[in-house]
Amino acid sequence: MNQFFLLSAHLLRVQISSSGTYYILGAFWLLLAYIFSLSMVQVRQANIIPVFWWAGFSSLFLIPILCLNTYLKGSVDNFFTLQRTLGISTASITLGYFVQRVVLLLLLDSILAIQYGFLVLYGSPDHGLHTCAFLGLLCLQMAYLSVSLFVSSLSKDRILTMMTSVGLLLGLWLLSYANQLFSGILTPLGQILRKGSLYYPFSHFLSGAFYPTELLSLCIWIFFPLWLCSIQGKR
């Protein structure tokens, strides 16, 4: 456990001292600030749910980029050094990579807290709704992260990893429309596919109400690919 914390602290230090982190941060903040400004000008309501939606949607493309280099040449060397020299387990290393990127995601989402502060100062936003939406966004981003880490552990080809991750995440997003596509005798298939979608529970979180199983299904999407990733790391 101690090794895991040391590893996480080291990875976080690397993350914070990386210039790329701040470039990504700036770009993401600019996008969300633009959506926020638009909604302030047009809607003038104490509600930033559209910004949450856009944060979720843009993460679909951003997170695969964040995970690109995790298991590539230089990182693989680091991985083997950590595993063989220091004797850290693959599960701890995978979890370390995950925590490193979750902290980055929290930094990315911190702009939402600033925007929410503005709403609290000049309006009366629905606290429950926004808390629920933030929980949903964080779970969605962690699920994306987990899936992307798993995909990047499967291949050493950067383009292939990127394309597969984005394609998979986009597919998991679009699955929420499966019940519309499959009708007639294929209706049960559509319903099952929709349950497996990542966007379906997220959309419920955005409306301020969710079922415990929706949270659980997101948790499965977070932890199961991580588990597979740690198994894959043993190769």
């Binding site: 210039s19 790329g20 982190t21 701040y22 470039y23 941060l25 700036g26 770009a27 903040w29 600019l30 600030a33 633009y34 926020f36 400004s37 302030m40 702009i111 600033i114 925007q115 503005f118």
Partner: peptide, 17 residues
Amino acid sequence: WIALILFLLPLSAWCIG
């Protein structure tokens, strides 16, 4: 506020980078 959120924050992140 829009100036702060839309320009200053992203710009400061890029400056640090």
